[in-house]
Each structure stands twice: as structure tokens, then as C-alpha cells.
């Protein structure tokens, strides 16, 4: 077990290092100098470049970049959005809303998906199954930002049940969650549908299996047999669907955050891309990768605990 966790953790660190390296080279390969501007005096430009080690050869810059991150947590300095401010400081305050939004959406969608999928499988062929299957197709296909637009228009403008934008100054946690409801629903619809579709398929297969028939002949009721025997076996393989879902939710949250003015990393990333503040963009992307890789790691490890087969064989599709 320990070896498994260590291996997963090592792989994550390696990936993160790779993200840093790629980010570094891609930004530095861009043709123009960051401080080249008609208003900036050449001496100042030179000074700034010296301060940021931009006058050194490439491999030295790379060394400083990696060293800064590892030893001081220095992810570079914002040059356009909030000039002179360290990227880490800007990001620090923006991590909690993003993590909250993503984690809540995921945590909300897993039980919902399981419930919906189970209902569809148990009522197979009935109208409710048809309806659920139809909704599943829609929720899987339509992008989360389209849902976000739709929800925002319907439930804040036509029916003013929810605030249009995220209320960061909300007094209580409940009020804050209230203003986060719509973005969470918009992000959760796709994972719910994906999990439900997967579970429906799995459960239908299990329900017609021989060991379930045995359980029934043993005298278990349908509910008992389903919960004790069918359910467990169907639940384990969901891990393989949840990991790709994380990337989907994280990507969707970039846009949805901006739509609902959630002061998270998504809005900041879009602003810094539009402003051309590449240092900040890279820092955000590295943090973004870190968050998504950590989530994957947590799920990987927890499934390693649940299902020993994964631990021994390594997760393979």
C-alpha cells in the first residue's frame, strides 16, 4: 500500500515538474521581450530584465525559475495585471473559491449520479428509464457553460430565485452557498449524467447475472440483493469515469467562474491571458495543474484502498 501511494505521488511530482518545464520554455520561446514598450526607458527595461534574470542564458533562467519555485515558492511576478505583485500572492486568495466550487460540484454529482443511474437501471424499459436516458444524453452533450447561461438567465432574471453573481461579501456560509448554487448545478450536470450512464450500464449487467439470481433464490428481497450484491460490484469501476470527470469539471469551472464572477482562478486566468500577463498565466496554470493532479491522486489512492486489485495491478483501462 505504502509503495503504491509513493509511486503515485512520485508520478504526480514528475508530471508537475514537466508542466513547469513546458510552461517555462513555451513562455520564453515567445518572440518579444516582456518589457519592450515605447514608454519604458531602455535603462529601466534592462534593469527589470536583470532583476528577473532575463539577461542570463536560457538554461540559467530555467534554473532560477525552478529554484525559485522549489526553495521560495516564487512563481514569478505579475507584470501587467498588478505590476510588481508576486504571482503567488495574487493566486493565494483565489484558490479557496475555485477549490470549493470544484469539490462541491464533484461531491454533489457522485451521489446524485449514483441515485439517478440506479433508478434508471431498476426501472429499466419503463418511461422513467427512457426519460432519464434522454436527459443523460442531453446533459452529457451540452457544454457546462451553455447550461450556465441558461440557468443564469432563467433563475436570476426571469425567476429571481438566486443572485446573478457570486456574493463574496455574503455574511453567512449559507448565503455564499446560495449564490454558488447555480454554478455548482451547471458544473455538476455533466458528471451526474456520466456517472448515471455508466452505473446504469453496469447495474443492468449485474442485475441479470447468475450470482444475483442465487441471492434471490437464497431468499433475499430484491432491494437486499441489489444493495448487498449488485451495487458493490458496480460501484468500484466508477473510478475510471471519475478521473476524466475531474478534468472536465475543472475546465468548465474556468468559464463558469467568470460568468458568475466567482473570484477564483478561472476569472484570473482569463484576465491574465487577455492582458498578456504571461508570468501570472504560467503561475496560474501550474497551480491549476497541481490542484487537478492532487484530486486525481486522492481518488487514485482512495480507490487503491477500496479495491486491492488496482493497487497491485496499477490502474489500467
Amino acid at each position: 500500500m505504502f509503495k503504491y501511494i509513493l509511486g503515485r505521488f512520485g508520478a504526480m511530482l514528475l508530471t508537475l515538474f514537466l508542466v513547469m518545464t513546458l510552461s517555462f520554455w513555451i513562455i520564453r520561446l515567445m518572440p518579444m521581450s516582456i518589457f519592450e514598450h515605447p514608454d519604458v526607458h531602455p535603462t529601466i527595461q534592462k534593469m527589470l530584465e536583470e532583476q528577473m534574470h532575463l539577461d542570463k542564458p536560457m538554461y540559467m533562467q530555467y534554473y532560477y525559475f525552478i529554484e525559485g519555485i522549489i526553495t521560495e515558492g516564487d512563481f514569478g511576478t505579475s507584470v501587467k495585471i498588478r505590476p510588481g505583485m508576486s504571482a503567488f500572492e495574487i493566486i493565494e486568495s483565489r484558490i479557496p473559491p475555485t477549490v470549493l466550487l470544484n469539490v462541491v460540484s464533484l461531491l454533489f454529482s457522485i451521489p446524485m449520479g449514483i441515485i439517478v443511474g440506479t433508478i434508471a437501471a431498476l426501472k429499466r424499459g419503463k418511461w422513467i428509464d427512457t426519460l432519464i436516458s434522454f436527459l443523460i444524453v442531453i446533459c452529457i452533450s451540452v457544454p457546462s457553460f451553455v447550461f450556465a447561461s441558461l440557468l443564469q438567465y432563467t433563475f436570476t432574471f426571469k425567476l429571481p430565485w438566486f443572485p446573478t453573481l457570486y456574493d463574496s461579501a455574503a455574511g453567512s456560509f449559507a448565503a455564499m452557498m446560495h449564490s454558488l448554487t447555480l454554478p455548482i448545478i451547471a458544473l455538476a450536470l455533466n458528471p451526474i449524467a456520466t456517472i448515471a450512464r455508466y452505473l446504469r450500464g453496469e447495474l443492468i449487467e449485474t442485475l441479470s447475472s447468475e450470482y444475483l439470481l442465487l441471492a434471490r433464490t437464497k431468499g433475499l428481497t430484491r432491494a437486499q440483493a441489489t444493495v448487498r450484491h449488485a451495487f458493490r460490484n458496480s460501484l468500484v469501476p466508477i473510478a475510471n469515469t471519475i478521473i476524466p470527470l475531474i478534468t472536465g469539471v475543472m475546465g468548465g469551472s474556468l468559464v463558469v467562474e467568470k460568468m458568475f464572477a466567482v473570484p477564483g482562478m478561472g476569472g484570473q486566468l482569463i484576465d491574465s491571458i487577455l492582458a498578456g500577463d504571461h508570468f501570472l498565466t504560467v503561475a496560474l496554470l501550474i497551480f491549476y495543474s497541481a490542484i487537478s493532479l492532487c484530486t486525481v491522486l486522492i481518488i487514485d489512492i482512495s480507490y487503491g484502498i477500496i479495491d486491492p486489485r488496482i493497487r497491485i495491478g496499477g490502474r489500467k483501462e
Partner: peptide, 18 residues
């Protein structure tokens, strides 16, 4: 496998910037 471990969105954004 290593390439696949990199977050898809991050890679796409980086390359679009480039």
C-alpha cells in the same frame, strides 16, 4: 503516458499562447 498525465486544458492553453 507521461504526456497524457499533463492536464489537457493546461496544455491546450499553453500551446494557444505560444
Amino acid at each position: 503516458e507521461v504526456l497524457d498525465g499533463l492536464p489537457y486544458i493546461v496544455m491546450t492553453i499553453l500551446f494557444m499562447i505560444l
